[in-house]
Amino acid sequence: MRLIVLTVLSIALMVVDARFDALKPLRSQLGLFVSPLYYAAELPVRGWDTVTELTSSRAQLIADNERLRAEALLTQRKLQKLATLTEQNVRLRELLNSSSLVDERVLVAELIGVDPNPFTQRILIDKGENDGVFLGQPVLDATGLMGQVVEVLPYSARVLMITDASHSLPVQVNRNGLRAIASGTGRNEWLELRYVGDTADIREGDIVVSSGLGQRFPAGYPVGRVQSVVRHPSQSFAEVRVAPSAQLNRSRYLLLVFSPESGYGDVLPALDLSPDAPEAEAAPTDEPAATTQAAAAETAPAADAEEADNAQ
């Protein structure tokens, strides 16, 4: 008897949770109590990190320091060029009467847990609603696009990786602008480009970047590099594999992006606002982006037909 009651109750809960938003507040409150478990589970790893840091030798520290200094020098050189390039870009865009690119803002978050289910690719990060994180927010690491926020708890958030089997994002080949949909495969070694025509101009080694068409991810961030292209004469689409450029299973520090495409969420985060970011320019584009962003789920189905046409 009790079994029947509890079973019916569980099924009812599942249906309500899947179809309505009524349980969201309860879930986030419970999450507040439960997420410390993730912190606790990560403690040994953190402890080990601290120990290795404390006991690393002086020579190693000096070597590290030198390497980092060299790296900083190199990036600064690139940055110098970038400043002039950005200016040039803005001027050209003004000539063309198109809107100028707005700088995005980022918030640094730390990984605190990996989803224990081996068949999903999700992680938990240490920033949540109180830091201005919102649903659908893009997440990057130092080398590329990682995923998007799918669940926001008060002090933590869950991120769905681009390699999860249920995730797709609109991308573009950097070399020629060919558009496609990159779908996760459930394994973190590669993504699949869906609906790329057999005759499409795509080669091994091509860099694939986000196209920004889904109104969710900002345009131009690297997604991966084409690993293999298999063309079957009997099939209308080629099989394209892309190795993600983000270090999906290694990055410890991630960047949460606040951009005009993805919206800024309900609150602008008070911290991390770089003073030179043009606030006024961002404001008008903010509103529509935020509303459409909520409505636009995975854009894959709608864009499929168009992509296929373009490819052929």
Partner: peptide, 9 residues
């Protein structure tokens, strides 16, 4: 709640 799956599963 811990695994972020549907309630009741």
């Amino acid at each position: 709640v811990l695994f972020g799956q549907l309630f009741g599963q």
